[in-house]
Amino acid sequence: MPSVSTLTLNPTIDVAYEVGQVYHTRKMRTEAEFYSPGGGGINVARVFVRLGGNARSYYASGGATGPALDGLLDLHQLVRNRIPIQGHTRVSSAVLERETGKEYRFVPQGPSFTSAEWQACLEQLAQAKGDFLVASGSLPPGVPEDFYGRVATIMATRGIPMVLDSSGPGLKGGLAEGGLFLIKPSIGELRQFVGEDLAAIEDVSEAAMAIVRAGQSRYVAVTMGHEGALLATPDGAQILPALEVDAKSAVGAGDSFLAAMVFALSCSWSITDAFRFGVAAGAAAVLNPGHDLAQAEEIRRLYPQVPQPA
């Protein structure tokens, strides 16, 4: 059975609400409250399990909100390895304004880590197992910029391919070590990494291929929202358009994309078909409001609609 370990240094309790209209100052009564465990690696684990795989979630949590996150993970029946920290686990909010269809997202920075806390994360990861290790999410304050590079070194000694989905210092530090199997930046994260606008698809392709040619990551999957996705491989770049669906929320689309792609790779699919499966999952995720992520039946329904890449 396909299996992964996931790492979420900066998890979140995701809260979704709906209101008729957003006003300043006034108290707004919400409807359709939805609470779920979140953060990149946890979201990947949720979708991976829905697809029929096994996932073990390594995550840090603490403070008054930590037990609430632990309980939400148990409700989702996820196998978990909690790394205790002193800081409060963050709470993120997404508010859907029904009148306009606009979604407002509020995401705290997250708690600061002590040196002992992030080193405890590395110690636990030394026991990780699975077809892949998926490290996803931002680096919390106090965690060194080369942290994901250190994780990559540990995974290399264990023979476990590492997948990284991060931004800013986290992405830069992970790529500096090199030898990653797959990274999945959004177009905005790739622009930040290279420091260029990447206005044309050719520019995006060249930036992604440069990472592959440098040996920093074997594959680079760039998600570009309604403009589709691009996959850079040692054999060149592939481009897929986004599927046209009735989007209700953009929350979790990238995590769903990555989970499906890694699941397919764990099932020994080709990199191209895994890329197509990821695009189907990204489309499936936006069909759902709030933080519900992609459902397995929707991913499999949409997959045949994804064309072969250009």
Rank of each mutant, 00 (worst) to 15 (best):
268 S>V: 09
257 F>M: 14
38 G>A: 04
287 L>S: 12
210 A>W: 00
263 F>L: 10
303 Y>M: 13
208 A>D: 01
309 P>N: 04
15 V>C: 02
143 V>L: 10
211 I>S: 00
290 G>H: 06
88 H>W: 03
150 R>Y: 04
147 F>R: 08
11 P>V: 11
269 W>C: 11
56 R>A: 04
309 P>V: 05
92 S>N: 10
183 I>V: 04
67 P>N: 08
120 A>C: 11
69 L>T: 05
213 R>E: 00
116 A>K: 15
248 K>Y: 01
170 G>R: 06
273 D>A: 09
58 Y>M: 04
160 I>W: 05
258 L>A: 07
192 Q>N: 15
7 L>S: 08
19 V>L: 00
293 L>V: 11
286 V>E: 10
111 P>C: 10
200 A>C: 13
127 Q>D: 14
167 S>Y: 10
99 E>F: 08
224 M>C: 12
119 Q>P: 09
127 Q>F: 11
133 L>W: 05
69 L>I: 01
53 G>T: 04
42 I>F: 02
87 G>F: 04
16 A>W: 01
2 P>R: 13
87 G>R: 08
248 K>S: 06
195 G>E: 06
74 D>H: 08
16 A>T: 00
35 Y>L: 15
251 V>G: 03
289 P>W: 01
173 G>L: 07
107 V>R: 05
248 K>L: 14
124 Q>V: 14
204 V>K: 03
133 L>K: 12
273 D>G: 07
174 G>E: 01
236 G>S: 02
59 Y>V: 04
93 S>F: 11
209 M>Y: 08
235 D>I: 14
277 F>D: 09
85 I>A: 05
279 V>G: 06
204 V>N: 01
149 G>S: 09
149 G>L: 10
